[in-house]
Amino acid sequence: MHGITNPALSVEAVSHSYAARRALDNVTFTVAPATFAVLLGLNGAGKSTLFSLITRLYGTQHGHIRIFDHDVERASGAALRILGVVFQSRTLDLDLSVMQNLTYHAALHGIGKREARERSKEVLARIALADRAHDKIRNLSGGQMRRVEIARALLHRPRLLVLDEPSVGLDIKSRADILSHVRRLIAEEGVGVLWATHLIDEVADDDQVIVLHQGRILADGLVSRVVADCGAADIRDAFTRLTGAAASEAA
C-alpha cells in the first residue's frame, strides 16, 4: 500500500478567475490522512470557489487538485468516489424521509438498496438519529439536518471529507456536537478532513490551519506553529495580524 504516505488532498498552484476577478491565486496546500485541517477565511476569501473546484463543479483552470493521488480533472470518477462532501447550502430533500435521502445518495454511488439501508442504519446510529430514520427532513432541527448531511457524506465510506461552513446558522450546542463528531471520525476511521469556516473558535490547538484571504494562502501549518510564527498570543490574534498585514500590503 503506497497510499499511506500520500496526502488525502493536495492542492497545487491552483488559480481561478471569474472574468476579470481573481478568486484564487496560486493556492497550494496538502491535507494528510487522519488530519483535521481548518480552512480559515472571511466571507469572500475564496473558500467556496475552492470547494467547487475540489468537487469538480467547475473545472480547474490552473494547477492540480488530487485526492489520494487521483487527479480531480483527469480521473474524476476515482477521485469523487473517495470524497465525501457537505455543502454550505442545505441539499437534502425536505419532503423525503431521512432514510430516503440516504438511499438516494447511495444509489448515486452505485450502492444497492439493501446495502444502503444497512449502511444508513449504521451511520444514523453513530450520529444518534437512528430513531428518526423515517421522519421527514422537514421535521428535523437545523443541527439534526447537518448531522444527516454528514452521515450522508460518509455513506460511501470516503477517505477525504470536505465541509463548507458546516456550522453556519447552528446554535452553540449543535455546533459543538458536529465538531466533536467529525473529530471522532478522524480518530476512529482515519478520514482526512478539510473544514472551511470563518469562525475562529472552531480551531483547536493541534489542528492544521490554512488561512485563506482574498484568494491567497497567508499561512499553513499546525495552529501552534502559525501562532508562534506570527508572534501572536493565540490563533485569533494571529489571524487578525495576518489578514491585517495583507490588507495594509494591498493598500
Binding site: 500500500m1 497510499g3 499511506i4 494528510a32 490522512p33 487522519a34 489520494f68 487521483h70 470518477g77 476515482a78 477521485a79 468516489r81 473517495i82 460511501h156 465510506r157 477517505r159 476512529e188 476511521e189 482515519g190 478520514v191
Partner: peptide
C-alpha cells in the same frame, strides 16, 4: 494509528 486506520478503510477504496 494512521496506517492502521488506512488499512481498516482500505476495502472501500478500490477507486480504480
Amino acid at each position: 494509528t494512521a496506517a492502521a486506520n488506512t488499512q481498516r478503510i482500505a476495502p472501500a477504496l478500490d477507486a480504480q
